[in-house]
């Protein structure tokens, strides 16, 4: 009996301390007095994580290749070709070539958009995907990384830096449901918000794109680039985000929702770049991959013009003013409009 009372007392004390910590951390926000505790943790464990990752990187990449396959069924063809190529390059050599190729592509992307980047590797990952989704990089303040910088890889937007330690940095991914990024459709310049889903839906990792103008046309296969934040922090403009995979009809609501497959393979991140200086001019769509080389798994290009056209004709029927930035120029739009007026 006495023992139980003592146990409850101990538990009560511990819970009280934990709640006080939560409160202090919450009230303090950025200038939290617990920040020093956090940076101690990051310098102490960051080095250990770095070491562990460098030792077991071959094992991890093996597992990534192994278990990633069933998820990406539509990519099996490409993976098979890739595997054949990989099998040719043997042993340890293989991994370093792959990483240097990733780095090369990343540098190419950065030059295309005139971003100034610091390259880094992912050394640790936290959390249940969809909830808290963050990774740790092996570069920090010493390399010029500060909080609220954009993180990209060779394919597209990855996330933003939330904490920067001495030699490591924490990145919140775009699939984190607390993150939201301004996005823009590539041709119509329509603006929306990209955010994490907070849940898994069949068919892989998706993010949600909320189009602010519900009358604006959006179709499968359209691509999204980042809109850019004020002072280019936390997001620089013009970074490719993803391809629209599915448009959800939301009749009567102020916004439209589409599900977007990110260009960057968020589940298998390795070499990434932190943008330490934004481009002088918005690169617009310049960084988007060429249409033929789009990594999107065949979003049936014939279906997309139809979808956008039906939306257009609806806009025509209503007496709404025409949008200044008409999305689909001349060649596709013209015949459909003629048939509509007949």
């Amino acid at each position: 009996m006495r023992d139980t009372r003592r146990a409850r007392f101990t538990l009560g004390i511990l819970l009280a301390i934990a709640l006080i910590l939560v409160t202090v951390d919450f009230r303090g926000a950025e200038s939290s007095p617990l920040g020093s505790l956090r940076s101690l943790g990051s310098s102490l464990f960051g080095g250990m994580e770095d070491l562990t990752t460098s030792v077991i990187r071959p094992v991890t990449s093996f597992f990534t290749m192994f278990t990633g396959a069933p998820e990406a069924q539509d990519r099996i063809g490409r993976l098979e070709a890739e595997n054949a190529g990989l099998r040719r390059q043997l042993g340890e050599q293989r991994l370093s070539t792959e990483r240097s190729a990733q780095l090369n592509r990343l540098l190419g992307t950065a030059r295309l958009g005139q971003y100034k980047i610091v390259a880094a590797s992912v050394i640790a990952r936290r959390g249940v995907p969809g909830f808290e989704d963050s990774v740790e990089l092996d570069a920090g303040r010493a390399d010029g990384i500060r909080p609220n910088m954009t993180v990209i890889n060779s394919d597209g937007l990855v996330g933003r830096v939330v904490h920067a330690g001495a030699n490591t940095a924490t990145v919140a991914l775009i699939t984190d449901s607390a993150s939201s990024v301004g996005g823009r459709l590539e041709d119509s310049l329509e603006v929306g918000v990209v955010s994490g889903l907070g849940k898994l839906i069949p068919g892989g990792l998706f993010v949600r794109f909320q189009l602010l103008d519900s009358t604006a046309p959006i179709a499968e296969g359209q691509r999204i680039v980042s809109f850019g934040s004020d002072q280019a922090r936390p997001y620089v403009p013009g970074v490719p985000i993803g391809v629209v995979q599915r448009v959800q009809e939301t009749p009567g609501e102020l916004t439209r929702i589409a599900y977007v497959r990110p260009f960057a393979r968020i589940s298998a991140l390795d070499v990434v770049g932190v943008v330490v200086a934004a481009p002088a001019r918005d690169p617009r769509d310049a960084v988007l991959p060429k249409p033929l080389a789009t990594p999107s798994p065949s979003p049936t290009p014939t279906a997309s013009p139809d979808l956008s056209e039906t939306d257009l004709s609806e806009v025509d029927d209503d007496d709404r003013p025409r949008r200044p930035a008409e999305p689909d120029p001349s060649e596709r739009a013209a015949p459909a409009r003629r048939s509509g007026s007949r």
Binding site: L21, D25, R38, G41, R126, E132, S134, E136, V171
Partner: peptide, 11 residues
């Protein structure tokens, strides 16, 4: 709580 990467409240 302090092990990086951590983006939640300490405690």
């Amino acid at each position: 709580d302090v092990l990086p990467p951590a983006d939640h409240l300490i405690g």
